[in-house]
Nucleic acid binder design. Structure first.
Lengths: 224, 224
DNA sequence: GCAAAAGTGTTGTCGGTACACCCATGC
DNA sequence: GCATGGGTGTACCGACAACACTTTTGC
């Protein structure tokens, strides 16, 4: 009934972030290579301990800046993973986060971290800790949010064609969509607006360029 | 860039639980009265620190048993609240949980806690910490889950009439539903099955009694 | 017999899905 | 001129919302 150990060592609080992007029609996640035991050589999601004067969301943003150079991206809290065995070295819960970036960002690869890179979100390499479970959960949540919010704005560049938007949706949802229905629906709910410009340079007929009408998180019904 | 304080005091991990029930057509939440400063006399959600050998969900269940006598209820993790100022006494993040009980459970009121009771979830008394925000978030999530899952089974007794089920839905959603459409939909998706008995004793025509077909969390479409 | 809750059917509308063709450009 | 992705219109179908009356019991 009473606490068994009065002065037990503290339970730590960390954050981890699953950062996604869509490139070449594929959903990809950002991973770092670990350099120290016990997970030497394995890959992991960026993250770290939180500080006293910040929320977990702020910690997630700070860790991303420090470890990857990414800033100002779309980010939200996901779930707290707390299996006592999740970290073999220290008792530590992890508040997992989901983040999205457009495909044209550049990573800072110069510093102490041995390697950093984008990997297929559906078939990642072997991951440290419980990061495989975190990644699976993040993909699931992203799929769900895509259906009833406008989060896609955080995954695409400022301007894009409807074909590019559709391919981003297809990459995340993992299934093909009907172009005619997709375009009609996207326009019906005023998700995007024309910029007046055309995508030239590629072969074939140039597509009209669009931008998102609102570039902050909003609930909006699209696509069952 | 580097950690400012190498040996900063640890950030604690606690859990809090918003326990709901529906009684007399109203959504109610379980609150405890605090006995110690700085929130003496205010009410709070049940909760406490986690231990080293348990997940946050297990900690939530354990705290509920210790503080309220409730056990074996429906429970899920909600969100982690981490404002550095949320607890004026100790730096501590709280992993909030949502729990549901049927209206006929009894609370243990005998021990050290000065008071415990059910309050209207929409108009609670003055709450300690950030528990008002946690409660609001929990109500929002409960409403959402009611729409696409069968969680209502955790709020109703073993047997109930369709009228009672509808009133529970109306209490949580905060709006009236059409009886004919409600009954048709509930039966169409095989949410419930007849027990063959009737609700007698009240005045007026007795209703048939039903039970939920499955009494574990399942996704099922009901009610826009 | 009357008050009150239980229970049942039909119709119109809207949104979703399925589907085929013409258009504009680069090569 | 042809291959390729861009872009548009229609028809069917199912789900949902709106709506009124009969039934059964306790008092």
């Amino acid at each position: 009934m009473k606490e068994p150990r009065i002065h037990a060592p503290p339970v730590g609080v960390a954050v981890d972030v699953a950062v996604f992007t869509v490139r070449e029609g594929r959903l990809e996640v950002l991973l770092l290579r670990m350099t120290r035991p016990p997970f030497e050589g394995k890959w992991c999601l960026p993250g770290g301990r939180i500080r006293h004067d910040e929320t977990v969301e702020a910690a997630a943003e700070r860790e991303l800046v420090e470890k990857t150079g990414l800033s100002g991206l779309w980010l939200e809290q996901l779930y707290t993973f707390s299996d006592p065995a999740r970290d073999p070295q220290a008792r530590c819960v992890s508040v997992a986060h989901l983040a999205l970036v457009p495909p044209d960002v550049s990573l800072r690869t110069d510093d102490k971290y041995s390697a950093i890179g984008w990997f297929p979100a559906e078939r990642p390499p072997s991951l440290a800790f419980d990061h495989r479970a975190i990644l699976s959960y993040a993909v699931k949540r992203l799929r769900a949010k895509l259906e009833y919010t406008n989060v896609a704005y955080a995954l695409l560049p400022e301007q894009f064609t409807l074909g590019e938007l559709q391919r981003a949706y297809e990459a995340i949802l993992g299934r093909a969509l009907d172009t005619r229905n997709f375009q009609r629906k996207v326009r019906a709910i005023d998700l995007v607006e024309e910029t007046g410009e055309l995508r030239t340079g590629q072969a074939h007929r140039p597509g009209r360029l669009f931008r998102f009408r609102v570039r902050r998180p909003v609930e909006i019904a699209v696509l069952t």
